[in-house]
Nucleic acid binder design. Structure first.
Lengths: 216, 216
DNA sequence: TTGCTGCTCGGGCAATTTTCCCAAGCCGGA
DNA sequence: TCCGGCTTGGGAAAATTGCCCGAGCAGCAA
């Protein structure tokens, strides 16, 4: 019912860089069993292309500017639960990986992976299996040992403090805004970091921004 | 004297993502007159590959983790002033572009460019001309009109450190990536904050993100 | 050539912050 | 009632920051 031929795997390519897209296309098509049936350069077009071509696998770069790739995943999965989405990005942060799987992705590979690993992942995902590259597995494993899930585990106060912090407020400003002692804000700051698994403030800001807690 | 055939343009490909490299290779080779004679996945190997193959053009992604791509440019140019280096990256911040040209690059194209524009740029650079994609020209033009942002006051080392910091790297990671002492990275961190006027790390991340130094 | 200037690199050290561990009050649920 | 989680903060050692400094080196101008 899907794809081009009974013997091939049809792929929808979503990446905002034309030449990168074209590169993938050629790499995949050289495999013989993989066929790129459509391309999209942004999250918004991704679902339209999906509907039009019903591919076996969506190869999706979630580091597109502006629109959230996670949005695209959720979008496609909401309307076509059988869609297989393989996320392909240069980012390798645990929170991102988990968010992608949480949104409905079937696999996650980094751009540092060998082309053969990507091709293997595409075939796995097409068979309905879950796939991820070795480095991603490593990161998730480490992450599961240490602590963290993402922002969902934060309390109301923690979310508010994280929002103000990510917005650029100093500890003193947050304390006075919320009528707290500086010490309490510092303690929250530390708690938020441990809960989210962020190792630096920058990671915290990125996390908050990627989840819509703050705009940049 | 250089390249493979008298009628072709030989290219050295430097990018840290294997599949992206392979994609470029196929795109370029399909042109007929372009031949990828070598690849490298980091700045350190780039010069060795250059020496070994003496390519007409080096296609270099300067957004590689750790090592500064600018370093690679200067490295190659210092030993082989006739080298033609085409910088190819997803970043489009004016300071980066200027730094690249300042380091000796012959051209600058973004990954948002059409493949045909990249190919055209390679041919221009091989002829000894300067080349840049339309969006880069636009950015430089606008930049020359505007009074200059806070980021323009930063040196290239500072830019590189800010990029890695905003990307979520810890001080230790940056230090080891760049072969610097932790103390030096800390000093740069402080200097960057004072130069840009950022009072918190979060503000620094926001600044970097808003200027395209990092994506969120 | 000499000097100046700017970038890079790091030491030093006091002040501040971070990192953890802890306790206490409050509130909702079992 | 008791338990667990949230909120609020103290304490103290470890780490980082803020700001000062000097050295090396490249470019550049006089």
């Amino acid at each position: 019912m899907s794809g081009v031929a009974a013997t091939g795997i049809s792929v929808l390519l979503v990446d905002d860089h034309p030449i990168v897209r074209q590169g993938y296309r050629r790499v995949l098509e050289s495999q013989g069993d993989l066929h790129v049936v459509a391309e999209a350069d942004n999250a918004a077009d991704a679902y339209g292309a999906f509907k039009a071509h019903d591919p076996d696998v969506v190869l999706l770069d979630i580091s597109m500017p502006g629109a959230s790739g996670l949005e695209a995943i959720r979008n496609i999965r909401a309307r076509s639960p059988r869609a297989r989405i393989l996320v392909f990005t240069m980012h390798n942060e645990a929170v991102l990986v988990k968010a992608a799987f949480g949104a409905g992705a079937s696999g996650f590979v980094t751009k540092s992976s060998e082309p053969s690993a990507v091709v293997t992942a595409i075939r796995s995902v097409a068979r309905g299996e879950r796939a991820m590259s070795d480095d991603i597995a490593h990161i998730l494993a480490e992450d599961s040992l240490s602590a963290g899930s993402a922002l969902d585990q934060l309390g109301e106060r923690e979310i508010e403090i994280l929002r103000q912090f990510a917005g650029g407020a100093t500890t003193e400003q947050i304390a006075s805004h919320l009528n707290l002692s500086v010490k309490t804000v510092q303690n929250y700051h530390y708690l938020i970091k441990t809960k989210t698994g962020a190792r630096t403030d920058a990671q915290l800001v990125r996390l908050a921004a990627s989840r819509g807690l703050t705009r940049i």
